[in-house]
């Protein structure tokens, strides 16, 4: 007989891009990690810049080292797939990205203790919970 595990609850925290837009790199990363440390899965409307993602990993590793039972994070970004789209669409997307930031993407960040794995292909994101 297969034992069914009940999902006890899942806390999602949605952050509109406007909420982090004006923050500096440290504050932005700190805000996200504070939520993750509270065992929340964060859904950020938009995506971090490459250097912010690297900083997020660096700060996560420092925390794994210092905070008991914190194992790190799972992170994934899903963006519109523009590979088969025309040059005009790509240009329009690139321009809006430059003007108002990359808010067409969704970033999912969650504690590794809650999210076991995130499986991603260009079009879908699957969260596997611990």
């Amino acid at each position: 007989m297969i034992k069914k595990k009940k999902l006890k609850g899942l806390s999602l925290h949605v952050i509109p891009f406007a909420e982090v837009e004006t923050l500096g790199i440290s504050e932005r990363v700190k805000k996200l990690l504070n939520l993750v440390l509270g065992n929340k899965i964060v859904i950020l409307h938009g995506r971090l810049r490459a250097e912010e993602e690297a900083r997020l990993i660096e700060d996560t590793m420092a925390m794994v080292d210092h905070i008991k039972n914190f194992k790190g994070i799972e992170l994934a970004v899903i963006e519109p797939d523009l590979r088969d789209r025309g040059v005009f669409v790509k240009m329009k997307y690139g321009l809006s990205k430059k003007l108002v930031g990359d808010n067409s993407a969704l970033t999912v960040i969650g504690p590794a203790a809650v999210i076991k794995d995130i499986k991603k292909d260009p079009k879908k994101l699957e969260l596997w919970l611990s």
């Binding site: 490459a50 250097e51 993602e53 690297a54 990993i57 992170l75 994934a76 970004v77 995130i118 991603k120 292909d121 260009p122």
Partner: peptide, 12 residues
């Protein structure tokens, strides 16, 4: 290959 770590490394 679509893992975020790969994308983050290349993005950086």
């Amino acid at each position: 290959p679509y893992s975020q770590v790969n994308i983050t490394i290349i993005g950086n």
